[in-house]
Amino acid sequence: MKIYDGRKIIPGILIAAVIFSFPFWLNFGKAAVPPKPKLPKEVKNCVEPTTFMRTSHMQLLNEWRDIVVRENFRLFAAPDGKEHLMSLQNGCLKCHESKADFCDQCHNYLDVKPYCWDCHLAPKENK
């Protein structure tokens, strides 16, 4: 089988193949390590079920900040009747004590860089 202009086309194909198979060779031989966010020890229930929190916490937080800032409601009565302070710094992070051990685990895994921390102060980690 005769290939014409192979000297240009074959390297072209190779370059394209390398680019397109990038995920394969980049991870070649590696093991996939899923993130392990550290959960609070004492408290077992968050404000909403875990599955919901996993997928939608960002929207919940966004929701909350509107409600807090714009409507001045600061308490959230969870379905289980428990009341929570709707505050990232004074609520969430009171249970989830470490941003690095909790938030960053998944965020780094998925390369999500929320701008929460531009203003909100993360707890000072013990170093």
């Binding site: 995920p23 394969f24 991870n27 899923p34 599955t51 997928t55």
Partner: peptide, 25 residues
């Protein structure tokens, strides 16, 4: 309509390291 993207990435990673596992849910 949120899906659990941690699991999505787990699946994607398992595919690219050629050890496919399908997370539930």
């Amino acid at each position: 309509f949120k899906v659990d993207i941690i699991k999505v990435k787990e699946l994607a990673m398992s595919l690219v390291i050629l050890k496919p596992t399908v997370p539930e849910g």
